[in-house]
């Protein structure tokens, strides 16, 4: 499968050449493949947020190159806005970016900046709102009258409305209750599958990764610590624990059950898969 986004030896330093200079990324090589949902995980300060701001050109690497479909996004710095339309980034707490008088106008801000026709903007606003579950009865409301979860979804719709080839979300479920989390993440998962958009999800919840992602990138201290499919990454639990990250609780339970001699098969890191494996094991015992 081909790679949509690639980072080649990317380093980034905040406030370079001052006493406050801090390296946020050190020589990162990374590729995001077409179509999948990739999770980026790591501790606070591990460089996750810096990494995603590299991908759409909000930050310019101090060293190295960022390739979008094989082309350096900084080839023509004046056309960086075009890159931002193709690589949509939803920042942390995106509900704080809402500003327009109505929900539909706010979702349409991106498409308007793209210079689309009013009909096209209208169509995209409807489509994006439908994806995140914002009903049309809310279109004429002020975004400031909505609930926190709704505001977040409006903000996400504002980026989806640009129909980016890659959709990046920085902690989209932070600060939401479990139900809100599930709704948003399931919505994004469905959006990724239906539209074929490559989705990159930053989170520090291992459970979220296990549920919604195909691949995982583990960041630590400004470099890529580990990368691979979800099952590959979660099978290296000791290495994850070495940098203070945890595998999902159910994966730990499954591992301990195995150690007790209960024959569980398959990749076990979601509640469903463990349940299935347990049932299989129990049935197997009953038969024998």
């Amino acid at each position: 499968m081909s790679n949509v986004l690639e980072l080649c030896g990317v380093s980034y330093e905040y406030s370079p050449k001052t006493p406050f200079a801090t390296a946020a990324l050190r020589g990162v090589d990374l590729a995001f493949r077409e179509g999948g949902i990739t999770g980026v995980i790591g501790h606070t300060g591990s460089g996750k947020s810096t990494l995603v701001q590299m991908l759409n050109g909000l930050l310019r690497p101090t060293e190295g190159r960022v390739l979008l479909r094989g082309r350096d996004i900084w080839e023509k710095p004046k056309e960086i806005t075009g890159v931002r339309f193709r690589v949509g980034l939803v920042m942390q707490y995106p509900e704080h970016q809402l500003f327009d008088a109505t929900v539909s106008a706010d979702i349409g801000f991106g498409p308007r900046n793209m210079g689309l026709s009013p009909e096209e903007i209208e169509a995209r606003v409807r489509e994006a709102a439908a994806f995140v579950g914002i009903g049309e009865e809310l279109f004429e409301k002020s975004p400031f009258d909505l609930s926190g979860g709704q505001r977040r979804r409006v903000a996400i719709a504002g980026v989806i409305a640009m129909r980016p080839e890659v959709l990046i979300l920085d902690e989209p479920s932070a600060g939401l209750d479990p139900r809100g989390r599930r709704e948003i993440l399931t919505g994004l998962w469905e959006y990724g599958k239906k539209s074929g958009t490559t989705v990159i999800l930053v989170s520090h919840s291992m459970e979220d990764m296990a549920h919604y992602c195909d691949d995982v990138v583990v960041m630590n201290n400004g470099s890529v610590y580990m990368t691979g499919s979800v099952s590959e990454v979660f099978s290296r639990a000791e290495e994850l624990e070495a940098i203070g990250l945890d595998v999902p609780e159910v994966a730990k339970i499954a591992a301990r059950l195995r150690r007790r001699g209960i024959p569980l098969s398959g990749d076990l890191y979601t509640v469903e898969s463990v349940k299935e494996a347990l049932l299989r094991a129990l049935r197997g015992e009953a038969e024998s």
């Binding site: 980034l89 920042m91 942390q92 995106p94 793209m114």
Partner: peptide, 10 residues
């Protein structure tokens, strides 16, 4: 942060 968010929307 807000500037970045709006820049991300073009």
């Amino acid at each position: 942060r807000i500037m970045c968010a709006q820049k991300a929307r073009g």
